[in-house]
Design a protein around this nucleic acid. Sequence first.
DNA 1: CATTATGACATAGCGCTGCTATGTTATGGA
DNA 2: TCCATAACATAGCAGCGCTATGTCATAATG
Lengths: 195, 195
Amino acid sequence: MRGLLVERAARMLADREPVTLRALVEGTGASTMAVYTHFGGMPGLWSAVRQEGFTRLATRLDGVARTGDPVHDLAALGVAYAHNALDAPELYRAMFDARADLADAPAADATFERLVTAAARARDAGRLAADTDPLGLATRYWAAGHGLVSLVVQGVLPAESLPPLATDTAVALLTAAGDDPARCRESVQRAWAGG
Amino acid sequence: MRGLLVERAARMLADREPVTLRALVEGTGASTMAVYTHFGGMPGLWSAVRQEGFTRLATRLDGVARTGDPVHDLAALGVAYAHNALDAPELYRAMFDARADLADAPAADATFERLVTAAARARDAGRLAADTDPLGLATRYWAAGHGLVSLVVQGVLPAESLPPLATDTAVALLTAAGDDPARCRESVQRAWAGG
DNA sequence: CATTATGACATAGCGCTGCTATGTTATGGA
DNA sequence: TCCATAACATAGCAGCGCTATGTCATAATG
């Protein structure tokens, strides 16, 4: 029942339908009380929806193969992140909703940790400066990507501008961390090309 | 009456009070109809509140003096942007609310234009590469800053982490655009120090 | 000057929201 | 067998944004 309601909420989100209590349970056979039995109320449902969003993101990121080019892998994580957001914009907005519960933090941290380890791998492989702080780099990388994706998802920036903007931003952040500019750009561009 | 209601809405936003129709007009002597007479409804009120937010931001940015160091000025605009957001977090969130009207775009574009001209000035002054695209650089710069500020405003990142993160990000983007790393860092750090 | 049109105001009420109180039913353990 | 527990459905609450309606002051018009 929990899973059914969460999936239905995600579907309604994707269909741009307003996710209200009565609209959510309509057609499921369940009554409005199901939301209170399983989630304790609408905030609990939204929390579960955000968890679902982070779970889907984690699945996406897990699908990014680890190649011999750690900078490419770092960029590929960003590409997967962007595709995940643009494939389900409303879910992405719900994940970072202003009224989000801090109980969702662990799920977000788990996906972020993938970025930190990828940055550490790039440093340990010699692509980035030895004194590179993986946490700091990953934070700057994520924040910049989140800003770009948020503006695209919101319609402020057109979707077709995302690849070049994200590429230039990633190259800037990674070359500042010590990578060779030309080699870095090649790695990042290959990630966006799907290689 | 318009200004009174908008200011009261901004105040309620700052006080973390829910801005509802009845709560907004309470104490003003006006009835709920005032919102419909002057704004056409709550969406119109929110649009006016966002306009107010961009007006305040524009005032902040206009207060940034133009010095002999265009890279410092660029960073100073970012600092002012961040301070404006952190001084009124709820207003900042309202400005970039998911349900924002596209009619607010001109006000947002006007503030963004300041960043583009500052980037062009840095390029024309020889601090950035001659082939630097001011619009593209400003977009990356703004998106990265927006991502950082959004995460701080939302409580995902602590406020004290913003200066170092923003500094490193700005230095990375500006050095990628051709500025000298050491000189760039000095300019950006001076901007954050309030020089 | 008298009349009328217009805009701002207040009141009452509609449909919707999330939520709660209450009653019912089914399942599992003492 | 009896009962505690959990999940269910129904009805109704206060609050929300909004609208219909009536009132009143102001200003333009013959």
